[in-house]
Write a protein that binds this DNA or RNA. Structure first.
Lengths: 196, 196
DNA sequence: TTGAAACACGAGCAGTCGCTCGCATTCTAC
DNA sequence: GTAGAATGCGAGCGACTGCTCGTGTTTCAA
């Protein structure tokens, strides 16, 4: 790691904020490093002082995103295994939606079906983390389920989030609670027969 | 409309095929018009003889996609309203999956959460067509449902397809039937309590 | 106080992209 | 057979991208 001054750390945070905003507005590919630098009130050269390339910025955002997800979800306690399904779904869906609403850029970056070849690593890290989380909860609830079936269920569950969360994030604020309720309906309908 | 020779019509079809392949491989933005022309075995100038710009090619693909969806689904007959839910879901999900498997490029183009500003029109056309289809089926089955609730249900259903179909398309051929079954489970679990 | 390291600038490089244009070739109506 | 439209070529333009580099400024340990 390089030596950093306090000013440098501040700049890096500003650049991350600017990048998140620009990515949210125009997507990863259309976002230009010059635009990100300008948004942060900084020259292109300064941006490259801290991030070696465009992908490194996305990587930093992925790290930040995972950190927020982790802290929002809290520790994975064994008690989750015996919670009523409704409550379990509340505990999973609530933080997931909240974090994504608070970070409208992340869905544009890591919720994509096609990966622009770069971004592959950060995207996979985010997906792997979410997948692992879901898989662990399923394993705690249904230890008897074959691993292959469990993985398939976790994958489908992740895609359900991936399909519905962006819709919720981009919806009017007033419509959001109703859509969150629909998300929970979907999860209950799918997971009920499996881990009910 | 411009006057076209048979050769021109053939070229246009070849360019569409090439574009579908290139879009499927690298996505819309990363696809270059020169690459599409080369794939079709023609010069860039020839491509622009038939399509005014990159978006026009995507538009042509959207039209072709909608045509395939329409013919795969057949006419919307009133009988669908009284089919058992399981069978209704088979009739909806089967063709949807089949068309997308046959056209791996379309999910990369029209299944995206973020629209690259261009592409907005073709994407909206595809979404509107699918939405209208689902909404019509829901209306036939549950005429008593308020339009707002019906629209929300249709939107969620569309997003479920949007989340799961790309997964099915990109899965190994052997794993596909199991994933299609999961898709149907999801749809039954969600739609059962509503239009069951 | 001072000097080396960290920070900051911004014109501009090398490369790529969507697209153009002048011109050659092929088709078709008459 | 021939005029004119349709088709085809491909070098290359203008714009823009991610990124660099020479140079100047700020910070801070000694």
């Amino acid at each position: 790691m390089v030596r950093r001054q306090a000013r440098g750390e501040r700049r890096m945070a500003e650049l991350q904020d600017a990048a998140a905003a620009v990515f949210a507005e125009v997507g990863y590919e259309a976002a230009t490093t010059n635009a990100i630098a300008a948004r942060a009130g900084v020259s292109p050269g300064t941006l490259y002082q801290f991030y070696g390339n465009k992908e490194a910025i996305a990587q930093a955002l992925a790290d930040r995103y995972l950190e927020q997800l982790r802290s929002a979800h809290g520790a994975l306690t064994p008690e989750l295994a015996h919670l009523p399904l409704d409550e379990l779904i509340d505990r999973m869906a609530g933080p997931m939606v909240a974090v994504n609403v608070a970070n409208p850029g992340f869905k544009a970056l890591f919720g994509r079906a096609d990966m622009p070849e770069q971004l592959a690593a950060p995207t996979r890290a985010v997906h792997a983390a979410v997948f692992g989380r879901i898989d662990a909860v399923l394993a705690a609830r249904r230890p008897d389920l074959p691993a292959a079936d469990r993985a398939r269920t976790a994958q489908v569950t992740m895609r359900l989030f991936g399909g519905l969360v962006p819709m919720i994030v981009s919806a009017d604020e007033g419509e959001r609670p109703a859509l969150v309720e629909e998300l929970k309906k979907v999860l209950r309908g799918y997971l009920g027969p499996i881990v009910g």
